[in-house]
Design a protein around this nucleic acid. Structure first.
Lengths: 210, 210
DNA sequence: CAATTTATAGCACCGAATGCCAAAATGGAA
DNA sequence: TTCCATTTTGGCATTCGGTGCTATAAATTG
């Protein structure tokens, strides 16, 4: 991260020296998502976003490293929360239960955030460029889960066991998210919960039908 | 696919009219992989690949739609084989057993192919651009599996059940592949088999340790 | 006012990718 | 052989995302 203190979450407020920022990450994201939503992701150029915000193209790239990153918002923070939940869980609770509850917990959103989240997830799961980029972001998510699993069963996070669990868990989470984003169900956490319960039963065919 | 008959697999041989191709997909792939392997993917420009093959940059893009596609070789054909295996399986055999055996079967490679495959998989799982693109390719794989699962348990391929199984299965396959590509084990199918058995037992903790 | 700090704008540049058109190379028919 | 249809190639212009560099604008502090 080469981002300045202004964009980060930590550090003292540090009274504003120097020139004031012309906008904010939130502002840029709002303008960009609005354009993506109206005219499509690929049909929206960085120049247009910058113009909509009222800054230069070069400045856009100081707020977001790339056009695709805009859609991901503050995903980093969610990763940290997941890691904390997993680390603080009781070692008595079965591994897959801990995992399910942690993923469910990190994906609770207020009613006000759901609309924007649905737009974001709809884009991420349908625009090829963003589908592609999601693999990079989700790899970080996988690393967190693999680390947790390795801690539980022993061995390295890169071993087959932890890797299989982590990537399969990611698959379950992605399935829940895309189903939620596409259909009208408001119950995101419910979908996540169901997906992880299916996963933990080894995809029992009767349960899948039920 | 806007590719000409020459590159496709079907249609009559159709005696060569017109100008002869200056090279072939295989040729381009060999030259490209060699360069990727020696100097890195990002450090290799399309111009270099084209020069190595002895064609123009523009012609390179007639053999492969993009630089990243080169690494994927003839992945399409493998998809077709997977679909056939799944469709021809006995309906008596448990779903997850069918799936495991089909994936194992479509990933048997001769000793001569393994070295190149390891290079391909090493790139796919380590170069960010290719990690990203893998999501697009693997989405097609998921569609095949989700279709199979939906056929077994009823409902639409887009429903939560089939999507969860398909994406989790993909995760297991990816875990097996990356572990195989990184370590020295020559037993690719063994890794795939193990990953899918873990998946089908719901990640039993004892089995994971064993 | 001057010095320092921070953010911005603008420019040049690179590489991937696409559309377009002319030229080369081949086989077949007149 | 000559002409034509066919197919591939090559080169050019263009678009777009992304990066490095530099000058400048705006703000606080002394």
């Amino acid at each position: 991260m080469t981002r300045t203190a202004r964009h980060g979450a930590d550090g003292p407020p540090a009274v504003a020296r120097g020139r004031r920022p012309a906008t904010s990450r939130e502002n840029v994201a709002r303008a960009a998502l609005d354009l993506f939503n109206r005219q499509g992701y690929d049909e929206t150029t960085v120049d247009e976003i910058a113009a909509a915000v009222g800054v230069s193209r070069r400045t856009f790239f100081r707020y977001y490293d790339s056009k695709r990153e805009v859609v991901w918002g503050e995903f980093d923070a969610e990763l940290v929360r997941l890691e904390e939940k997993l680390a603080s869980a009781s070692t008595d609770e079965p591994m897959m239960d801990v995992l399910r509850r942690a993923v469910v917990a990190t994906n609770r959103f207020g009613a006000g955030e759901l609309d924007e989240l649905r737009i974001r997830m709809g884009l991420i799961s349908s625009v090829p460029t963003l589908v592609a980029h999601s693999a990079v972001r989700y790899a970080e998510w996988c690393d967190v889960v693999a680390g947790f699993v390795a801690g539980r069963i022993g061995g390295a996070p890169d071993d087959l066991g932890p890797q299989t669990v982590a990537r399969a868990a990611l698959g379950a989470a992605m399935a829940a998210f895309t189903c939620w984003a596409r259909y009208d169900t408001d119950d995101l956490t419910g979908e996540v919960d169901r997906a992880f319960r299916l996963l933990a039963t080894g995809f029992d065919e009767d349960r899948l039908r039920g």
